[in-house]
Amino acid sequence: MTLEPWLITVIEALIKVLVVIVVLLTGFAYLTLVERYVVAKIQSRVGPNRVGAAGGIAWLQPIADAVKMIMKEDFWPAQADKVTYTLAPGIAVATALLAWAVIPLNPAITVFGYTINFYIADVNVALLFLLAVGSLGIYGIVLGGWGSNNKYSMLGALRSTAQMISYEISLGLALVGVLMISGSLSLVKIVEQQSFWWFVFFQPVGFVIYFIAAVAEVNRLPFDLPEAETELVAGYQTEYSSLKFALFYMAEYINMITVSAIASTMFLGGYQGPFGILPGAHWLILKILFFIFVMMWMRGTLPRFRYDQLMRFGWKVLLPLALANIFVTAVVLVLIGK
């Protein structure tokens, strides 16, 4: 049986999408466990040690958590706006997953004369696509906050909108430095160019700005003002329970994985090993885990910013620094005649 070429393309893309989603959702479940252990170690606690424990690790804890989430009552606030209240968690997860369409995972391999590329799409606007999808992610939080019809939710949503729009600018500008060196917006080409020298060696400032802005984008401590529990109960997710709450939680963790993957791809060579050693998906996974560990570490050690400090830092420190970085990069590129 022979298949039409476009049908093969569609089927191949569908399989890839399915694999990426399954891996990300499983990864999310076990990251919650990792986070509990990391924070427990930092706070000199033991962490989960009951559910399916073997060798000091509670292997079945995420599954127990998931079952518990599903069994919980799905609570609806009486005055909630039904449509947006339901839509919000879905939008949050969907936008978190979408970014993976353009991230290259492995060098291409050829099986039986058929070349398999380990990315879903290679477009010449991939970098902008990431930023566009990231900017859509705000809708999930805003609609969740507004749809709940609760003032704490609303305040959390407003805070997160202001925060995400502010830090998105620095985030985008930090990536411009890489773009100027690579001369391409395609993530596949950007990774291929880093086979020996990672871009972090040429863009150390851009790398630091990106990472700080990315932590703010995913609303993690010390930037988790949208859900600051001491002042806003739980921010935009106050009214959510059961699976809808789980979806918001899932979106946060998948966003963590996504920004880590972008940082690895843009600055640390993606699937490329250090100085060209054994390229492959294992490097990408290691780098992502490293970034996620740093984020958990920050959560365990740093106190939360005050809101005016957060805004001042974003607009008066990160943004000018990102602009200066672009300026210096441009001058150097002209001087060396690239």
Binding site: L128, L136, I138, V142
Partner: peptide, 13 residues
């Protein structure tokens, strides 16, 4: 992409 980023992601928000 500019359409999504600027209109849907910034102005409409």
């Amino acid at each position: 992409v500019a359409q999504v980023m600027i209109y849907a992601g910034a102005i409409l928000i």
